[in-house]
Design a protein around this nucleic acid. Structure first.
Lengths: 288, 288
DNA sequence: ACGGTCGATAAGCGTTGCTGATGGAGTGGG
DNA sequence: CCCACTCCATCAGCAACGCTTATCGACCGT
């Protein structure tokens, strides 16, 4: 169970080819073949079918483990290296688009920060592996409940903001005049499925809402502007934190009253934030 | 970052001795020394101070990673091996004491089951590494919310039971006559700290309650009988699921009305439960 | 039928990683 | 105060591992 063997295993599985994996990893085809053979002998079960190269049932199970495993390994290496390396000057902050509300943006220093917009799942990984110094993740949660984050590594989290959630409707929508909406009122509505830009509907199901949603258009970008435009054009409703929902052209933001969930933003960092990062953490946590 | 190196690193750190670790691992002292040297060179930072042998700051960070890492590695190996191995006849079920309520016990088959009582943290690990075929974990959660489990491996969870939570008071307690109690009413009470037997108070804080608790006696066993006896003797209050709280001699169980949390039990299993385990899963999930 | 590609296997060889021995450093006892 | 003991680091030697090169059988398209 050498990490090297696991790494070649995942590349072989991904490329569905021993030779291609060898090329990508800088090995010989023979070496890759021996790697896989060694793994299969070690685990006592065939992992791949040859010709075509496809994971077996056991191989599929292994694949589910290896990703997080290698991630954690990288995280450990990065975490230790961070303590030895000289503190870098630049500070990179990974965040989801909806986490960057006005309150957060106001707390940023005037210069020296690199913002990197990532998926919710990518942010803990980026912080753990040192790709980013700090992370901002947001999501839906019961009031004062922490978010459920994948624990790829021992990360420290601080809640930095909580605000109400709004439903974004096109201006002419029959419910646009309401002062508040229950999710039950919207059982038959069509929702935009935009996991990287809006708040993911799937979180609502775990956070207490029930029932199945009917997604219409799926939007895989991270631009809030086009997202609100899609809603304005009638392609579906969107769930957004109130501050980012209000004021979008052609839309109306109505507070969500039930289930009682809030949009929560959390700041994430590894063990020992260096100078500039530590200062930013202090400012954000104290401020919020 | 060979797993072997990591394994010797943790043993050295645990035993605070190169030679002792070598003895335990079946290596020479020289080999252990070289392992640590290799790790330190690979990571670019000293991990241990010698004489006395103590983790450095970087070493401490590494230690936090290595435990889960090796656990996941074992889990992956066990998971794959499980698919190749012949299905065992015996079925072992790991559970917390409070998870074994009457409803659960009734669903067990008449014979062929080994029950193993473990800590909440140990159960996911046991299921992941194949030490147990199935796991039953319980805890406090908002109604219909899933529990927060450490994700040591991709495990499947099914909610199997939810029931109200009761506060266990000694029979003569001033609040014993109440029909319901708010946590606020008990702000000044003394609580038994029994993380392995009762419901851990710490979970309440994340589940919505606030404030600090004043633990009195700490009980590290898993026997509910002595736990209720401790409460009856006035050593502190205990939080228990209603069905296990009622009827204990010398105590009164009063429902907890606020915060609105329930005692939730979840069934855990790995990817491919074998015959007997699969049947038990089906029965429990359908029944609940 | 035949070149081309793919993965498995054998042989050769450099490197790794172990053992055993030795040395310097700190420690406790006589 | 010195000696014996323990601890970890280091060195030399050797076996085993892991890579490459080379070759083979199987499959595919032409």
């Amino acid at each position: 169970m050498d990490p090297h063997l696991l790494r070649t295993y995942v590349t072989v599985a991904r490329l569905a080819s021993f030779s291609a994996a060898a090329r990508e990893l800088g090995y010989t085809q023979s070496a890759v073949s021996q790697h896989i053979a060694a793994l299969e002998q070690d685990l006592g079960a065939p992992l791949l079918t040859r010709r075509p190269v496809t994971p077996t049932a056991a191989g599929e199970r292994l694949l589910e483990h290896v990703g997080p495993l290698l991630l954690r390994l990288d995280a450990a290496r990065a975490d230790v290296a961070r303590m030895a390396a000289a503190p870098a000057h630049g500070l990179t902050l990974a965040a989801t688009p909806t986490a960057l509300g006005p309150g957060i943006l106001g707390a940023l220093p005037a210069a020296g920060v690199t913002l990197r917009v990532l998926t919710r799942d990518e942010i803990p990984a980026a912080v753990a592996t040192g790709t980013a110094d700090l992370g901002l993740v947001d999501g839906l949660a019961a009031p004062s409940d922490p978010l459920r984050l994948p624990d790829v590594a021992p990360l420290t989290t601080h809640g930095v903001a909580e605000e109400p959630v709004s439903v974004l409707l096109p201006a002419g929508h029959p419910l646009a005049g309401r002062t508040g909406l229950r999710l039950g009122d919207l059982a038959d509505a069509r929702w935009l499925d935009a996991p990287d830009a809006a708040l993911p509907l799937a979180q609502l199901r775990t956070a207490g809402g029930g029932g199945a949603f009917r997604p219409s258009v799926r939007y895989e970008g991270t631009d809030l502007r086009t997202l609100t435009a899609l809603t304005a054009a009638g392609h579906g409703l969107t769930l957004l934190p109130r501050s980012t929902a209000t004021g979008a052209a052609g839309t109306v933001a109505v507070p969500l009253t039930a289930p009682r969930v809030v949009h929560r933003t959390e700041l994430l960092h590894g063990g020992a934030p260096s100078g500039a990062a530590a200062e930013l953490v202090r400012r954000m946590v104290d401020g919020g």
